[in-house]
C-alpha cells in the first residue's frame, strides 16, 4: 500500500539521491541493468517499486544518456554499447540465441532479458530497434502458432500461475 502522492513522493526522492552518486558511464550502466532486472518486466524480482519504476527508470536513462554523450565520440555513439561491447556483435549473439529458441516461453525470456540488459541508452537505438523487431517477430510467431490448442487450465500451469480464485462464468461458450 503506497499512501503517498503520485508525483512528489519519498520513493522518487530516494532514487534521485541514489542516482546523484552515479558519475561514470560504467557505473550508470551497471545501475540501470541492475534496476531493470530487479524492478521491470514480468521477470522482475521485486514489486516494491511497481508504482514508480517507470519514472525512476526514465531518470536513470536520462543520466546514462548524458554521461554517454559526454564520454563517447560520434562513431561510438552509433556503434558501441555503454557496456563497452560492439553493438553489432551483441545483436548477432542475441539473434542467434533467439533463432535457437524452440518454444514461446524460452523465446519470451530471451527477448525480455535482452531488453533488460540493452534497452537504450545502453545500446544505440539504430541497433536496438532492428534487433528488437526481428526478435519480436520471432516471438510473435511462436506465441501465436496453435493459439487455442492449449486449454486455459494447462496454460495456467505452463505459465506457473497460482490460481487464487475462479468464478463461475456466465459466458455462452
Amino acid at each position: 500500500m503506497a499512501n503517498y502522492k503520485v508525483h512528489d513522493n519519498p520513493i522518487r526522492d530516494e532514487w534521485v539521491a541514489k542516482l546523484g552518486k552515479v558519475t561514470s558511464v560504467k557505473a550508470a550502466t551497471q545501475f540501470i541493468q541492475d534496476f531493470r532486472k530487479a524492478h521491470t518486466t514480468p521477470l522482475r524480482t521485486e514489486h516494491t517499486l511497481d508504482l514508480d519504476y517507470l519514472w525512476i527508470e526514465s531518470k536513470i536513462e536520462e543520466k546514462l544518456a548524458v554521461l554517454r554523450g559526454d564520454a563517447f565520440v560520434d562513431e561510438d555513439l552509433l556503434n558501441l554499447c555503454t557496456t563497452g561491447e560492439a553493438a553489432g556483435m551483441v545483436v548477432k549473439h542475441w539473434a542467434q540465441k533467439m533463432e535457437k529458441a524452440t518454444d514461446k516461453y524460452s523465446a519470451e525470456k530471451i527477448l525480455i532479458q535482452f531488453r533488460q540488459l540493452y534497452k537504450p541508452p545502453v545500446m544505440p537505438v539504430n541497433y536496438f530497434f532492428t534487433a528488437d523487431t526481428q526478435m519480436g517477430s520471432r516471438l510473435m510467431e511462436l506465441r501465436n502458432t496453435n493459439y487455442y490448442a492449449t486449454s486455459l487450465p494447462d496454460l495456467r500451469k505452463e505459465r506457473g500461475v497460482k490460481v487464487l480464485h475462479l468464478g463461475v462464468s456466465k459466458a455462452a461458450h
Binding site: P42, L43, R44, H47, D50, Y148, L152, L155, R156, R159, G160, V161, K162, V163, L164, H165, L166, G167, V168, S169, K170, A171, A172, H173
Partner: peptide, 25 residues
Amino acid sequence: KCSGSLRVHELNGQKHSFSDEWGER
C-alpha cells in the same frame, strides 16, 4: 450480469484480476 466471471491469479509475486476467459488467455 454480463458474460464474465472473476478470476484472480498470482504470478511472480503479483496478483492479477480478470473478468473473462478471452482476456485471461
